[in-house]
Design a protein around this nucleic acid. Structure first.
Lengths: 133, 133
DNA sequence: GGGGCGTTTGAGCACTTCATCATATCGTCA
DNA sequence: TGACGATATGATGAAGTGCTCAAACGCCCC
């Protein structure tokens, strides 16, 4: 377990760690919300996301550990915001990539239907990055 | 477990899935290598990365399932390449973000040494996205 | 077509992550 | 100060992930 931020680790390990920090729907949703608003309280996050306070808090903790968000206490509430604008940029790039993947996968799907209509949509196993929108 | 690529899932789930696919050092390293070269054989990857064939193959399989790479057999060897140039762009954005995180964390470190020299580098717990380079 | 190289697949095991529930801390206001 | 609302933390069990080793598979060349 790495303890010190400045520890000597190769870049690909650090990158993998970054992606790991973003590899959960709740955490991505939080980052998306924080990308759209400069400042959101935990209360609002709970309402917007319809998630239990304890669960959300744990994920917020993960995001904070990974230096993706920062928190500030104002009165009885805690407000979170993105630690860097580039976090939003990373999400935007991911969205564009997913758009491309979706597009070409749909084309493949159409093509396979054209050449082999009886085949019920080949290559549908495993987790996929494709979806609507 | 989702079976069909076009399944109706919210965007944040799909994004999280994408990051999950990239959340491992070996997989990030592969993507980095493929970002620099248009076409790399499994043999070369094994040599470059100094990793066991079986292990690498499993990670390549994950990358393929997530539509991040494509493979092509030429003779006795299999060549992998990025499925989309934007995968490299995503890595580049991640690298820039990590650069910013590193910079500001180092500054904080300096500041804390300035104000509290006896404190042995506070806030060093948990996985961190910081490193050299 | 048999042997060898290159690549993939599968089973077993350790380890990590996540959701849930319970409990603790912090701040406000009566 | 005491009670309550808002967050955070800790423990537990279930599920997922990754590594190792073994075996299978596919292709090429003799």
């Amino acid at each position: 377990m790495e303890t010190f931020p400045g520890a000597h680790r190769p870049l690909y390990e650090v990158k993998a760690n970054l992606f790991k920090g973003m590899a959960h729907p709740v955490r991505v949703r939080v980052l998306e919300i924080l990308s759209a608003a400069p400042d959101v309280s935990v209360t609002d996050l709970i309402l917007d996301m319809n998630v239990e306070a304890s669960r959300l808090s744990q994920h917020l903790s993960v995001l904070k550990t990974h230096h993706l968000v920062v928190s500030e206490r104002r009165g009885s509430q805690v407000f979170y915001s993105l630690a860097y604008p580039r976090v939003a940029e990373l999400l935007a790039t991911a969205k564009m990539l997913l758009g491309e993947v979706l597009e070409s996968t749909q084309q493949q799907l159409l093509a396979s239907e054209w050449t082999a209509p009886q085949e019920p949509a080949a290559d549908t196993r495993g987790p996929s990055t494709i979806t609507r929108q």
